[in-house]
Structure formats: C-alpha cells, structure tokens
Design a protein around this nucleic acid. Sequence first.
RNA 1: GCACCAGUAGCUCAGUGGAUAGAGCAGCCGCCUUCUAAGCGGUAGGUCGAGGGUUCGAAUCCUUCCUGGUGCACCA
Length: 612
Amino acid sequence: MTSLRLAVQDAFKQAVAGLTDDPIDVPVQEVPEGKPGHYGTPVAFMLAKALRRPPPEIAADVVARFVPPPGVLRAEAVGPYINVFVDPGGFVQGLLQRPLDQPPRDEKVIVEHTSVNPNKEAHVGHLRNIVLGDAVARILASAGFNVEVQNYIDDTGRQAAESLFAAAYFGQTPPADAKLDRWYGELYVRLGEAKEQDGDAIEAGVTDVMHALERGERRDDVAAIVQAQLETFWALGVVYDVLVWESDVVASGFLERGLDVLKASPYVTQPSEGKYEGALVMDVSSFIAGLEEPNVVLVRRDGSAMYVAKDIGYQFWKAGLFDGLAFTPFAEQPTGGTLYTSDPQGEPSPDGRQFAHAQDIVNVIDVRQSHPQTLVRAALALSGTEEGRVASEHSRHLAYEVVTLEGQAMSGRKGITLAIDDVLVEATDRAAAVVKEKNPDLANAEAVARSVGLGALRFAMLKSEAKRMIDFRWEQALNLQGDSAPYVQYAHARAASILRAAEAEGLQDADADFAQLSELELGLARQLARFEDVRDEAAAALAPHLVAQYALDVAASWNAYYNHRDENGRPDTAVLRSEPGLREARLALVRETARTLAHVLGLLGIDAPDAM
RNA sequence: GCACCAGUAGCUCAGUGGAUAGAGCAGCCGCCUUCUAAGCGGUAGGUCGAGGGUUCGAAUCCUUCCUGGUGCACCA
C-alpha cells in the first residue's frame, strides 16, 4: 500500500476508534469511476451491527471525527461509504522517484524452472514453463527476496539415453553447424518409429546408454545438448544461476541419505509379503486424504529408486539439509551473469557463491505432475524430521496448464511440436514487418523488432492465470495490438518520445508547479500508485498475470490521458504545449509513468524500447 | 469410482466479500492542421454453468448437481 493510502487507513482507524472498543480492520479501496472521492472505505457496514445503527449514520459520524492526513483534502459520506478526496499535486509529488523494488531482505527462495529433458529442442509447451518461471523469479527479486534460479538436468533419464542411442543406431554424427538439440530431437522421433520393427535391439541399446550415463561416461554429449538448449533460453532473455544434474545428485549420496531418513519414519516400511513384498513403501494417507491406495513405492523390489525418492534428496538439498554437491562455471550468459553447473570436479562454493540453503522453494512444473509433486511434499512432511516438515511447508508447486497447438496436444515423441526457435524467428519477422510499415525511419529497427516480437510472445504466455489452458495460435500469440506487450511498449515509447522532446527544449523539473495539476493527472497517478500492491500480491501468489494485467491498466490510463479532450473536443493534456509550471509538473508525471511501465515490463522479462 | 482444475459478453480472458460486473478480438459510429492512430472516444452485447445456503452485502465463501479437462503404475 502506498504511504498515502496507509495514512488514510490510519486516519480512518483513529476516527473509528472513538466509536467502538473492538479493534477493527479498515479496508481502504479505490472509489469506482463516477463516484465522488478517490479512496474510500465500507467500514460503516462493519460497525452497523455492533453499534445497532444504520451505516449511513455511522459514516457521517466517522466523517465528523476524521482528521485528514497530509495530502488528503477532506472526507465525505457517500451513503454508507466514506470517501476521501486527495490533493492531485501532492499526490503526484509523493509518487516521484519512489523505489520500485523492495529493499533486499535476508530470505532466499529457489525457483526451479525449465528443466527440459536434455534430448530435444524446447517447444512452446516448455516456453510457458520458462517464461513463467523467469517472470516469477524477477517478481520475487523485486519483492526483496534473494532469488536463485535452478535448472534441473535429467541426464540419467530414458529420454536422454534414447536420443544418444538414436545417433549410434542410425550411424549419424552431427554436422558441424547443427543445432544439437534439434538434431537429436529429430533422431529421437525417428527412433520411436523404428521401435515398431526393431524394438528389442533398440531397448537393449538404450539400456546400455542409460548405464553409461549413470556412470557419467556420456556427460559431454549431454552437455552439448544442454548448451544448445541454453542458446534458445538466452535468446528469450532468460538466465539461470545453476544447472543441477541428476547424476550428480545421485552420486552425492542424496538419494541414500534421503532414504535413510525416510526409513526411520513410522510411515515407511518394507513389507515382507503381499503386493509390495521387497519394496520400500510409504503410507501417505495421513497427508493426502481420500486415497484408495495409501502406499507409494519409493524403491522398487529390484532396489532401483523411483523418481519421487530421487526428488526427495534434491529437495532436501535445496532446503540446505544436505551438502556435498560441487560446482564449476558452465558459461558466461550473454544477458548477464555466470551460469554454474554441478560438477564432481568442482568446488562447494566457486567464486564464493553458496547454492541451495533456501527458506522457500518454488517448483515450476506442469499441472499433470501435481500428484508426484504432492507425493514429494508428503515424503518431506512424513520424514519424521522437523527440517523435512519445514521444507515441505515452504515448498510450493507452481502448476501451470498445458499448451496445446491449434487444439492438439503436443508430443515430443510423436513430433507434434512447435520449436521455440521457430516461433522466435516468426515473431521477430512479423514484428519487423509492422515496424517497417509504422516507422520506416526507425534507427534500430532490428533490435526493436526483436523486443516487440519476443515481448508479444512472452506476454501471451503470461497474461492469463497459470491454471488457464493455452491453445497456441499464431494470430493470438503474436498479437501486436490490443491486450498485448506491444500495446504497453507503445505506450512507453510515446512517453519516452515526450521526454526526449522536453530534454531537447531544455525544460527543467525545478520549474514544476504541482498545484496546477488536476483530476486528469490524478487518475493516471492513482493507477501508478497501485504498483507496490500489485508487485507484492503477484510475489505472494506467484502470479505474473497480475503484473501483466496491471501493465495493460497503466498503459490504458496513460493512453486515455494522452488522448484526453475537453468539452469542445480539443486536446487538453498536451504536455509540451501546457503553460509553464503546469508543463513541467506534467512532465514529471510522464517520467514517472515511463519509469513504471518500463519496470513493470521488466518484471515480465519484456523490453521497453524508447521508440518504435 | 476418487481427487484436483475450469465454466463470466459471439470468441479469448480480467475481476476471489463491498458501490452501476470490466478489457481485447469480432460488429457498428466517430477522431490524425500529428508531444508516435501499434492509439483514443462512443455504441451494441452478460439468468457470472444450475439449484440451495451463509451475509447488511456473493461472480467471489459453503453445499449439491451438470458440463469439460487432468491425474490416480514397482513410469517420469
């Protein structure tokens, strides 16, 4: 809440305190369009029962007792509501130069996202995961958290083995200029088809490669695929702090140590007879209600661990309960920072960096994995350790719905996909065509086209709630008008253009006369003032769509202000043609608008060009 | 069968206890003698899936039902 709204709330509390002894929460909300006042409260309703009087009477009483804080002109009872009127000039001034990020606080949160199997190129289904995780990480950082982004590399899984084996099976070696994730992905699909004729031999070969992977023998091959995938993620403007390889997690003994902890739990048993004879199972019925089958297998009869068991060790490590992984730099990321990787030859704290040891854990994984994710949290909670219980409570699964392709489910195995690389090219091309048409003389047209195309794409993935299904259609995903990133970017460019002209004219902020500002400016300023609430709510709910929707709101308010006309239909908000004094005050508001728009877009990982 | 998610304007979606339920797209009517029309204004369009309940107040909370999606392996 802005300081002004807090002050209004306090003043209401003071006024209410004389009427009742009970401490009462006083909500302060925006007054709807068309009603008198700017901020208001329905608190009179809440007092009605205790005071046994009608709300409008109480509202009048509260108004009589209300002492306006600085910046507030007066309060007025509007029926049962109590509304206050704000001084426009003071309000705008209070907004200028406000910090848009929370000061850093000593609370670490790990965001695990992407985690694409290292055997194929990423498609638009993965795009949602990547963009969502990246936006959440940015929002959490802005809300003051110490954020560590992890990308889990499942290098011992079946998929990686299949792609590597496919190359050998078909006798292929990658051409020098091949993008390896795509190259292996195509072979992976071909191998799937070949299984129908030659299933047994392929199965044997894949198994051999899986064993080799477990021994760490094909690490370089997998790393080459990971490198190729990273090129795509970097092109999206996404960066990571550390890659965590499954083989390293296993080799570090986290699996065994996790299992040792669990074996001491009363919920974990190894039946000597029946359906689960010889397996290690966990009874999760006390954690998950309504299960037909309360037992979950952690370790198979043959001694091999299930995914859930492996993940428990990884989650324990994230929470700082296990140590022992070593790290080494993997790459310098073009968009900033060193990317580290787990590596048996590395060191525990390279360059003084300490990984894991997080208080909060966010796992960005699609909704179909909700069940196994719940099992992992159940295992942590039922481990019988206090640390496990805490880790369970502080880990959240950010579940997002799947992306379909023109109504069809995507499938890497069947080759029904749309690669991010291809979508990026198309997005940039479409944006470039529009830039050329709208602004043929634009200096850095190519860079702007990239920002606009990528922005449109990211925005399409973020503007709705994560639990909403997305059907990818070109026209919608690359929409350059309406509810889209380019709409917001354009609003920003417009503001930037005014600021450039003002600078060329040598206008000085010091000449601003804020007293000349009116209701017109206040409307826009109130929109800007919502930012802190939106940011903190989005961080708490892991909900970037709130930020995206807010970006649209700010752009719309600014565009409405920009185009405003008086009763005679003449523009009455032309900043640079305003009277001196008013002109500079308006300019300050425009600067604040541009700053807010750029920052909000930044939280979504979207550029804000100064011209387009 | 059990569990989770969704159902709001023709379409795609915002809005999770407060004031006449909002936006984009599609439709219709306007606005560039321009601080960038990738924009703005207006108009039309809604039994907020259905029924019951809680509340001064419900799209929002509870409950039953309907429809659609997903999940319930010694896979991940």
